[in-house]
Simulated assay, not measured.
Amino acid sequence: MSTDYQQAREALGARLRELRLSSPTGRLTGTQLADQYGWNKSKVSKLENGRQTPTPDDLRKWAEATGQPEAYDELLARLRGFESHIRSWRRQLAAGHKPVQDTHLSAHADAALFRGWESSMVFGILQTPDYARSIFSRYSELQRSPRDIEQAVLSRMRRQEVLYDPSKRFHLILWEAALRALVCPPSVLASQLDRLAGTVGMSTVELGILPLSAPLKIPPATAFWMYDDRQVIVETWHAELWIDDDASVDTYLRTWKTLQESAVYGADAHNLISAARRALPPH
C-alpha cells in the first residue's frame, strides 16, 4: 500500500510540474513559484518529485500561480484519492481525537463481522473510560494534537454499544504482553483487566489471548482491524492505512488466522488475564 501511495504522490508531482511548465502566462521557474508564496526553495522540488505531500492550500496556490485555477479541483481530487488510503495522524488529529473516533464509529455501522489483532494494548472497543483516557493522553502528547481527551473518551464509549448488537460478531486476538503493559497506573490496569475478563463469555465476542510462551509461526507485529473481510485498518506511528484491495486484505486474513492458531480461548484466556491481574504492582 505504501508503494501505491508513493506512486500516486509521484504522479501528482508530475502533474504539478506539467502545470508549472505550461503556464499560459509564461513558463514559471521553481524559484519564482517558491518566492511568490515565501516557500522554502526546496519545497517545489520535493512536491514535484513526490517527496512531500501537498496540502489543499498548496494545490490552490499552485493552480493560481501557474495561471490555471481551474486545475485545482482535479489536483484536490488526486490528493483525496490517495489520502483516503493513507491517513496521516498529523492531519487526522488536527482537530483532536474525537473526530477520529467518530470516523471509526461510522465505519462500524456497515460491518457485521470484525476481526482484530492487537499486540500492545487492550482493544479500544473493550477499554474502560480510565484506560482510554490514559491512552488518549499518551498519544496526544506524542502527536502534539489538541487535548480533547474527554470528548474522545465519550466517543469511544459510544463505539462500545455495538458489542451488544446481536447482528455483530467480534473475533479478537490479544497478545499477552498487552495485558501487562503499564500504559496507565496499575489501579487503572487492574480495573481494565477485570473488564476484559468479563468479555470472555459475551455472546458477540470471541476473545483469544496469544500467550507469551506460545510457539509462533510469524512475529506478532502490527495491530490491525478487519471489517467483513473487505477492508483492513492498520495503525502505524505516523498514519492509519485503510486497505481495501483484495490481495492485501487476503494477506491480513491469512495473518490473522495464523496468529489465531497460537491463541487460547475460554478458561485458558481467563487464566492468563487473572495471572496478569495478580502480577500487578501494589496500588
Score class of each variant (00 low, 15 high):
132 A>P: 02
223 A>P: 15
95 A>G: 06
108 H>N: 15
143 Q>S: 01
105 L>T: 15
133 R>T: 12
103 T>Q: 15
220 P>M: 10
166 P>S: 07
99 P>N: 02
22 S>K: 12
65 A>L: 04
106 S>E: 15
269 A>Y: 07
88 S>Y: 10
97 H>S: 05
204 T>C: 04
53 T>F: 03
162 V>N: 01
250 D>V: 07
36 Q>Y: 02
20 R>E: 07
223 A>I: 05
203 S>H: 10
55 T>H: 01
101 Q>G: 02
230 R>E: 14
122 V>R: 00
153 V>I: 06
116 G>S: 11
261 E>T: 12
69 P>T: 02
65 A>S: 14
121 M>G: 07
128 T>S: 15
219 P>E: 08
10 E>Y: 08
220 P>L: 13
267 A>T: 12
188 V>N: 06
264 V>R: 00
55 T>R: 07
123 F>M: 12
177 A>I: 11
185 P>G: 02
73 D>S: 13
101 Q>S: 00
266 G>Y: 04
165 D>G: 08
184 C>M: 08
236 T>Q: 11
22 S>D: 13
23 S>P: 10
8 A>K: 15
260 Q>W: 01
10 E>Q: 14
96 G>T: 13
83 E>P: 00
263 A>S: 10
113 L>Y: 13
194 D>P: 04
194 D>C: 03
271 N>T: 13
119 S>A: 15
242 W>K: 11
57 D>N: 12
208 G>Y: 09
155 S>Q: 13
141 E>Y: 09
67 G>D: 06
36 Q>C: 00
256 W>G: 01
88 S>R: 14
247 A>T: 15
268 D>T: 06
222 T>E: 14
114 F>G: 02
110 D>W: 02
41 K>H: 15
46 K>R: 13
75 L>F: 07
30 G>E: 03
77 A>D: 12
180 R>H: 12
66 T>C: 15
171 H>A: 09
121 M>W: 10
84 S>D: 11
34 A>P: 00
23 S>Q: 09
256 W>T: 03
87 R>D: 04
30 G>C: 03
202 M>S: 12
90 R>L: 03
167 S>P: 07
116 G>D: 04
195 R>D: 05
26 G>P: 07
23 S>V: 09
71 A>C: 06
99 P>S: 03
40 N>M: 04
168 K>I: 03
152 A>K: 11
264 V>I: 08
98 K>D: 08
158 R>P: 04
94 A>L: 12
211 P>W: 05
215 P>K: 14
23 S>M: 09
6 Q>I: 07
8 A>T: 08
141 E>V: 13
64 E>I: 13
158 R>I: 04
124 G>A: 04
182 L>N: 05
78 R>H: 09
155 S>V: 08
254 R>G: 11
117 W>P: 04
76 L>S: 05
32 Q>F: 04
271 N>E: 15
257 K>V: 02
105 L>W: 09
228 D>A: 08
235 E>I: 11
271 N>D: 14
65 A>K: 07
156 R>F: 08
263 A>D: 04
44 V>A: 11
143 Q>E: 08
139 Y>E: 11
119 S>Q: 11
263 A>P: 01
109 A>T: 13
140 S>G: 15
138 R>M: 10
118 E>P: 05
14 A>F: 12
188 V>T: 13
272 L>R: 09
